[in-house]
């Protein structure tokens, strides 16, 4: 082809603009400052998860997967499981605009007594995908929720070194 200098210049400009565009984060979470992200509009995704009933079942299997996975086991094999599952149901429900109110702490505070790295964060996402798959949540609905959760790595991850699990007594 004949090199199209105009197109190339436009591309260069577009790249430069892209580079200079600042992340539009730091939105004020009007509904709930502890939620970690803004809730969705509409309830289609919430319905795809089977509502709150569906979320409860998903979180039960999610927790089983988290304890079975050696990467996440140290964080979840303790007596907080029931509490964590209940918190996750409320948080996911509110994020999906399902009419709930997450009563828990923000993501920074709730992970303050441990150190989470990227391997741990990704392992948790993977186990969450397995649990959603098991309950036949459509892939696109999964990704709509994951898009709300993924940015929370900025608050949850506190190390690029070794993970440090919280110290809680084992489950009864």
């Amino acid at each position: 082809m004949n090199i199209n200098i105009k197109a190339a210049t436009a591309a260069l400009l577009a790249t430069a603009t892209f580079l200079m565009a600042q992340p539009a984060i730091a939105e004020v979470y009007a509904q709930n400052p502890n939620l970690g992200n803004t809730p969705m509009e509409g309830t289609a995704t919430f319905e795809a998860f089977g509502g709150k009933e569906g979320l409860v079942k998903i979180m039960d299997d999610f927790m089983i997967g988290l304890v079975a996975d050696p990467r996440t086991k140290p964080f979840f094999d303790n007596n907080k499981q029931t509490f964590i599952k209940a918190m996750l149901v409320e948080q996911m429900c509110e994020l999906m605009n399902g009419g709930c109110k997450y009563p828990g702490r923000d993501m920074k505070a709730s992970h303050a007594n441990m150190k989470v790295n990227r391997e741990g964060f990704n392992a948790l996402v993977e186990q969450f995908q397995f649990a959603m798959d098991k309950h036949n949540v459509p892939f696109s609905a999964q990704n709509k929720l994951l898009a709300k959760l993924a940015p929370m790595y900025r608050e949850i991850e506190t190390t690029t070194g070794d993970a440090v699990p919280p110290v809680f007594p084992k489950a009864e």
């Binding site: 892209f18 580079l19 565009a21 600042q22 992340p23 539009a24 984060i25 939105e27 992200n37 994951l146 898009a147 709300k148 993924a150 940015p151 790595y153």
Partner: peptide, 16 residues
């Protein structure tokens, strides 16, 4: 040099 392509789902900032 910048960005996180996968996890920064709430911004338009790409991984560069």
């Amino acid at each position: 040099v910048a960005g996180e392509a996968i996890l920064d789902a709430d911004t338009w900032m790409p991984q560069i």
